[in-house]
Design a protein around this nucleic acid. Structure first.
Lengths: 211, 211
DNA sequence: GAGGTTTTGCGATTTTTTTCACAAAAAACT
DNA sequence: AGTTTTTTGTGAAAAAAATCGCAAAACCTC
């Protein structure tokens, strides 16, 4: 019952849109509205829902609250997700300070770095020596990690994470990681994101105008 | 001659791998090696290349330097890409400080924010009032922008960007943007990235073990 | 330089994802 | 109560992307 990556990302988008509609006082929503909000077609919305056995009411759409509950359950938002970050440079610090995770039930519980100057046990989110990652992850049963260390260190750090129980990594380092079969890595690469954009901007500007 | 998004991202990955191999002193490379480095299959590598008319030598693979030149040209790396950032919170500051863009020919030339406390004209990368975005983008002919403002402001900022000549946006705000036909938006949403990970980690842990 | 081996290039096939299209259900109206 | 309208749910069709498979070219060895 493994669904495709895009489908899950779309569910997250629908969820976002639903929160917004909910805040505006709406009670019901149509596939059409969600489609607009998520930038897809209405039938894609319905197909996604049907894939997860979510159903609405003909002519009356979906109950927002009910739908939100179902999406949240699918996306594992019934409990707070504890996450650690390896590497406490600018990016990681920004992530640690970022308030947006909290309302999504995501809690960064610790950062790890080799640089002693960055260590700080009394912080709200403590920054600990990298050697403590192992024990911390094990003791707290952390399943999700973020890698924001330099390229050269990423492989090593990932290995340590996986060895000690981490099952999923968001990797900001520009290098492919070896992951055990039952683990997942999602890559985020801002350079590539920008490169991609540059390519499509150039490609579009070369496209002849339609009549 | 528009190619699919994944294909372009893969080209970026190949490029990265090639730089690494080059630094290690390699001169030639096989589709096989690139496949390993990029986490895809060898025939996917060759297919991607053939899509762009890149060819190598049977039995001798590809010349790394030549290949790099071709990829760089496809990805528009023949000239420095000037980029602006709207919103100068934690994330944007991290991006501005990030050294990795430079070696990729990406230069963040200015930040923009409404908060006067953040303004600073004498910085290496100046932070200017949001009202100046319009003129700056026009005068400098900037084509690429990053949106790192809160959700509520994102739509407005995007509109200003597009109106003044920006053709591509990387949007960190968790909301869909309306873009003119000849413009592109790439979305980066860290919450969704983590949610996605949580889903797949859960899904995999539920998968029965194979015999 | 003949024979064996390796690796590319790309058409063909398969798989995955998206879109279409329409019957059926529910609400609204008359 | 019957008719019209709107919207879902989902098979079927189409489109897009990934993978396969193999002939042909280039290199290597003897």
């Amino acid at each position: 019952m493994l669904k495709n990556r895009n489908c899950i990302i779309r569910l997250s988008r629908y969820k976002n849109a639903l929160y917004r509609l909910n805040a505006l006082g709406f009670v019901r929503v149509f596939s059409d509205n969600l489609a607009d909000a998520a930038g897809v077609t209405a039938s894609a919305v319905r197909k996604d829902f049907s894939l997860f056995g979510i159903s609405g009411n003909k002519k009356a759409g979906y109950q927002i609250e009910e739908l939100l509950e179902k999406l949240n359950s699918i996306l594992g938002k019934d409990k707070v997700q504890k996450v650690i970050v390896a590497g406490c440079g600018n990016l990681a610090s920004a992530l640690i300070k970022y308030k947006g995770f909290e309302k999504e039930g995501i809690k960064i519980v610790a950062g790890f770095d080799i640089d002693p100057a960055k260590h700080n046990r009394s912080n709200n989110v403590p920054v600990l020596p990298l050697e403590e990652l192992k024990g911390f992850v094990r003791n707290q049963g952390i399943k999700i990690g973020i890698i924001a260390v330099p390229e050269a260190a990423a492989g090593q750090v990932a290995e340590t994470m996986f060895k000690n129980g981490i099952k999923g990594i968001v990797n900001f380092a520009p290098i492919r990681l070896k992951a055990p079969e039952d683990c997942v890595v999602n890559y985020v690469n801002l350079e590539h994101e920008l490169e991609n954009l540059v390519y499509f901007v150039n490609a579009l500007s070369k496209t002849k105008k339609k009549i």
